[in-house]
Amino acid sequence: MSERRHLNRHHRRAGSDRMGRADRLIYLCFLMVVSLVFLTYGKVIFDIASQGIGQINLSYLTDAPRQSGRAGGVFPILVSTVLVLAIAVAVALPTSLAIALYVTEYLAQGSALSSLFRSSMLILASVPSIAFGLFGSSFFAQFLGLGTSLLTGGLTLAVMIIPICAFAFVEVFRLLPTGYRTGAYALGAGKARFILCVMIPTCTAEIITVVLLGTGRALAETAALLFTSGYSDRMPESLLDPGRVLSIHIYDLAMSIPGGDRMAAASAVLLIGLFLLISSVGLYFSKKAHP
């Protein structure tokens, strides 16, 4: 009897040892993948930073580019970038929120129309950005007569990020606890009051995160802006002027300007810094919304 008990104990221990080895193996695999990814990204950031950070100083941020960008600064380019981004977010945020609210609150879940909306947004979110660039060029620039301008670029970016944001908003709103919805309606609230006073305030942090996701996508975009916002590195005087955004500036310096590599790296550092700044501000408000 005691022998059998001893054997059982032995088998259990052997089993747990085997599991322990498997756990360690899986842990090491994950650690290896994570380290590899971090090292790769670290190398990319390090290379860009080591080349570009030395070029960045106050006059780089406040001067206009000279010698096709080989010298001078990036001030007009920063202004164009911020304007294009502001137009894109100002148009995309309310539009994608409206789409998501319509899909979640006004269409029956699982209905054919709701499924069609969701799958359309998913497909549009994966359309190559060059296709949006061509659309923006033919629709906003030519058909609406806005020409190659910051407005055309911003609107094109908005069209590009609306499906991404709308799809993410739908998922955010679907995850809202059912109790909030039933609680609000049971108190006599109408749909508008529920959306404005419960749904949006409750999801503020998630809404900010989705906007940051869209902003990051827009900030890094080059292909969609090639035909829409233009190459001009002059200071824009109105939204109907062409303007060069940072990503196009980097592309131009790296691909077309001999000796432009260092300045391209400096602009890349600036682009990363700009995104970090926007993300930090977004995360601050996101944390404030959900203390």
Binding site: P177, G179, Y180, T182, G183, A184, A186, L187, V198, T202
Partner: peptide, 11 residues
């Protein structure tokens, strides 16, 4: 008015 199975105050 209605009170539900799980308390559902808003956050």
């Amino acid at each position: 008015a209605m009170v539900f199975q799980r308390p559902n105050p808003f956050p």
